[in-house]
Amino acid sequence: MSEYVLEVDGLQKAFRVGAGEVVACNNVSFTIPPGGSMGLVGESGSGKSTIARMLVGLETPDAGTIHVRGRQLGLQERGRAARLRRAKEIQMVFQDPYGSLDRRLTVAQCLDQAMRLHGVSGSARVAALLDQVGLLAKHGDSKPHQLSGGQRQRVAIARCLAIEPSVMVLDEAVSALDVSVQAQILALLNEIRASSGIALLFVSHDLAVVSEVTDDVLVMYRGSILEQGPTGRVLNAPESSYTKLLISSMPGPGWDPADVLERRAAFEAKVGV
């Protein structure tokens, strides 16, 4: 057994765009310890979502390896058994609470189907899952359109938990929610991590959100990791000039959009974009 739940090594991915190529992920390596929580931050186009999608098998890496609990995942799963094995290791919560649930199924059906796919069943388990994510038993009979954004995201989390994965990837999972709902979901995630030991990979463009739920953080820019370390250290005393730029670009006291643009131009001149 490895000392890490998730080990990503030398992950590489490029997309063809027209005649050229865009490197979405350039030699990315990181590890998450059991029960750990890693943040992955960057702007749109930084490659953070591509990494999330490669981890759950929605994209195929060009190169690199992914190990969960010391066992290597295939770059691309073939066959039912391999697919299910991967699903059992890593699950994902998507950004869009409105689109990531099948509108035809009730919450209970949704959870039940996820479990049955992996060979477990029982309405008692559905009730326990609902309770675990802070939903009431009556929500089991609701269809997605009858729920609020926060409730839907709780369902999406319950759907992950139903499969009992080792790692949960959250791709901008709270970005579409109001701040108070956001705070509740973040608290729920912290609780789940503490009680189940599931490791979290928290992908977000929002540094403040990441600072609330992660131990460590990776800062990505154009497919590469520019800085990594304990979240508190990286966000409070950033070393990379890009991290500094990101932090100072966030609206806050004394924030001025014109300054942000000036600093951005200076940064881009320096890295030679």
Binding site: V179, D206, S211, N236, S248
Partner: peptide
């Protein structure tokens, strides 16, 4: 409820 980065070195 607004999430914040500890004490920002803003």
């Amino acid at each position: 409820a607004v999430p914040a980065i500890g004490h920002l070195p803003n």
